[in-house]
Design a protein around this nucleic acid. Structure first.
Lengths: 207, 207
DNA sequence: CTATGTGAAACGGTTCACAGCA
DNA sequence: TGCTGTGAACCGTTTCACATAG
């Protein structure tokens, strides 16, 4: 559901940018590739309401979605690991997502420390606790090799982050108060490989 | 379920590498961070069977999982887009995943075309059809900017791929015969931000 | 006893279908 | 008539609980 709200908001903003102030559930559904029933149910769940005659007010809906998704104050994000994956993340969000505040990036490799990469100062990983004590982050992004991920997670948790986006191919051990979202490209790719096979072949693999 | 099978296999391989030939459902469950009931149900679903006395034979289980997940012949993978994200993907899989065959990488930028990056020859995007006709791929990975993603998807589909790992922040329009897995870092991060908030605060956002 | 294998109940999320309203 | 709002049915997963076997 959160995923869908994010998608709705993207499409609604484009819709508004096109100068169209109102939208019907089936129109938004078409853009987000879901059914109109899902849209209506979601809108209902977040407590917004439209009119049968004119649909939903796009701006009001964007606003309501923001009230649900976005924390009251701009959340701080700490990125650990500036390998190719970490850099990709930083670049994409620097461009795409001004609502987030990247408070710091960390890496072990000495030639990166001290430099400013994509508008974000790179600190040594050893300074993680110090830097985040001065400027706390709500969420951390782990983009280090699998072997280092658990240690980074422990330190992020101790530094007070409440959520982690984990790009390393391991499941993290964390206290239940911390939310972890795993994005494992290897798993996703294996999933695609699996479902890319014709259904007949998949079923006989189970036999 | 597919995700869990991938995880099981990873852990089983490490388990075997440690010289331990047999494993109980609760042990595997601990490693994969699920309950033993889930493990037993999954094992049952793929048609493998252990013994109450000795648990499961790790090697046999790895084998059975492979029979379910892996296509009969090593699947070809085509990567489109060699920006930071595409490079990260290529690097990770070159290291980590010898079971996949990266048949080709594509990029528009002229200074990359012709070079060999992480062991994979980079072709011009214009040659996508030609290259894949000579050496077909089962799945494609889309790591281009959102604006170009749909066009790339269309061409991959026409070139015969049956599955797509889409890293671009747009939903693709594809025929139902093609499986699409979306990995949208912006969405994942927003999800983390959302769930990082204390539950009390999330609920009152709905009010 | 402990662990597997598995029907059966419980759950969360989606879909249906329709009442109510401009 | 065409849309929203929503109770109720539905469906795929997860969890429970227990029969069975070494």
């Amino acid at each position: 559901m959160v995923e869908r709200l994010v998608a709705y908001r993207r499409h609604l903003r484009r819709w508004l940018a096109d100068g169209k102030p109102r939208i019907y559930s089936h129109e938004l559904a078409g853009l987000a590739q879901v059914t109109s029933a899902v849209v209506r149910r979601d809108v209902m769940t977040i407590g917004y309401t439209g009119s049968p005659a004119k649909g939903y007010a796009a701006a009001g809906l964007v606003d309501r979605i923001g009230r649900v998704l976005d924390p009251p104050q701009r959340p701080g994000v700490a990125l650990v690991g500036l390998g190719s994956l970490g850099r990709a993340v930083l670049k994409h969000f620097a461009r795409l997502h001004p609502e987030l505040r990247f408070v710091a990036a960390f890496d072990v490799s000495p030639e990166k420390v001290g430099r400013i990469i994509d508008g974000c100062r790179c600190h040594g990983s050893a300074d993680l606790e110090t830097v985040l004590r001065a400027d706390p982050a709500l969420v951390g992004i782990i983009a280090v090799p699998g072997e280092a991920a658990q240690d980074v997670a422990d330190r992020l948790v101790r530094a007070g982050v409440r959520g982690i986006l984990n790009l390393a191919p391991v499941r993290l051990q964390t206290p239940p108060t911390v939310y972890v979202e795993d994005v494992d490209l290897a798993v996703s790719l294996e999933k695609v490989v699996f479902f890319a096979r014709p259904e007949t072949e998949r079923l006989e693999a189970l036999a």
